[in-house]
Computed example of a mutant assay.
Amino acid sequence: MSVKEHKSHKLDQCQCGVLTVSDTRDVKTDKSGQLIIDRLKDHGCNVESYMIVKDEAVEIELAIKEIVSQSIDVLLINGGTGIAERDVTIEVVNRLVDKKIPGFGEIFRMLSYTEDIGSAAILSRASAGVIGKTAVFSMPGSSGAVQLAMDKLIIPELTHIIHEINK
C-alpha cells in the first residue's frame, strides 16, 4: 500500500488524552496543553481526558495508566523530556510502552535543530511509542516545541498511526 493510500484512511472519531507534566503549570497557565487540545479539536478529535501532574514518576505513571485505561487512541504528553534531574517523563513512558516509535524523536530533534533552536535540540528526549492500542507521544513542554510536533509530525500522521495500531 502506498503512503498516499495509508494516509487516506479516515477515522470516524479519534479519542485523545492530554497530559501536562509540570511543577508550575495549572489549567490557566498551561499554554502547551491548551495548544494540543486546540490542534486536536481543529482536526476533529475528541479530547476525553486532560490532566496536569507534577514531575514525579509515580504521579506520571498513575496518570498515564488512568488515561490509557479509558480506551483512547492517542495520549499526548508535554513536559519532563529534558535532562534536568526533575525530568522523568521519558523514564516512565519507556517503562510502559510495548513498542517504541523512534522516528518521532529523531525527526523532532532534526526539525528542532533546523527550524527552531539549533544545537540545543540535542537536549530533547522527545519520544513516542504504543501502549496496548494507544499511541503515546512525549514532547517538550514549551509551546514552540508542541506546535512543531503537532503541526509537522503528529497531526499529519495521526490517522495513519491509529489505523496501523488497530490492524
Results as ranks from 00 to 15, higher is better:
Ser2Ile: 08
Ser8Gln: 13
Ser8Leu: 10
Lys10Pro: 00
Lys10Gly: 13
Leu11Asn: 02
Leu11Ala: 14
Leu11Met: 14
Leu11Lys: 01
Asp12Glu: 10
Asp12His: 06
Gln15Cys: 04
Gly17Glu: 03
Gly17Phe: 02
Ser22Trp: 05
Asp23Cys: 12
Asp26Glu: 13
Thr29Asp: 04
Gly33Ile: 00
Gly33Asn: 07
Gln34Pro: 07
Leu35Asn: 05
Arg39Ser: 12
Arg39Tyr: 06
Cys45Ala: 14
Cys45Val: 03
Asn46Asp: 15
Asn46Phe: 13
Asn46Arg: 10
Met51Gly: 03
Ile52Gly: 01
Glu56Pro: 03
Ile60Leu: 03
Glu61Thr: 09
Glu61Val: 01
Ala63Ile: 02
Glu66Tyr: 04
Ile67Tyr: 00
Val74Arg: 01
Ile77Leu: 10
Asn78Thr: 13
Gly79Gln: 04
Gly79Thr: 06
Gly80Cys: 13
Thr81His: 10
Asp87Phe: 04
Val88Trp: 05
Thr89Cys: 02
Ile90Asp: 02
Ile90Ser: 04
Ile90Met: 11
Glu91Ala: 11
Val93Gly: 01
Asp98His: 12
Asp98Ser: 11
Lys99Glu: 15
Lys99Leu: 14
Ile101Tyr: 09
Pro102Glu: 14
Pro102Ile: 13
Gly103Tyr: 09
Phe104Lys: 04
Gly105Asn: 04
Glu106Trp: 09
Phe108Gln: 03
Leu111Ala: 09
Leu111Asn: 06
Ser112Gln: 08
Glu115Gln: 15
Gly118Val: 07
Ala120Pro: 03
Leu123Cys: 04
Leu123Asp: 07
Ser124Val: 10
Arg125Tyr: 06
Ser127His: 07
Ala128Arg: 08
Val130Glu: 10
Ile131Ala: 06
Ala135Lys: 08
Met139Val: 07
Met139Ser: 03
Gly144Thr: 12
Gly144Arg: 15
Ala145Phe: 05
Asp151Val: 14
Lys152Asn: 07
Lys152Ser: 10
Leu153Pro: 02
Ile154Thr: 03
Ile155Phe: 04
Glu157Lys: 13
Leu158Met: 15
Glu164Trp: 10
Ile165Asn: 02
Asn166His: 14
Lys167Thr: 13
Lys167Gln: 08
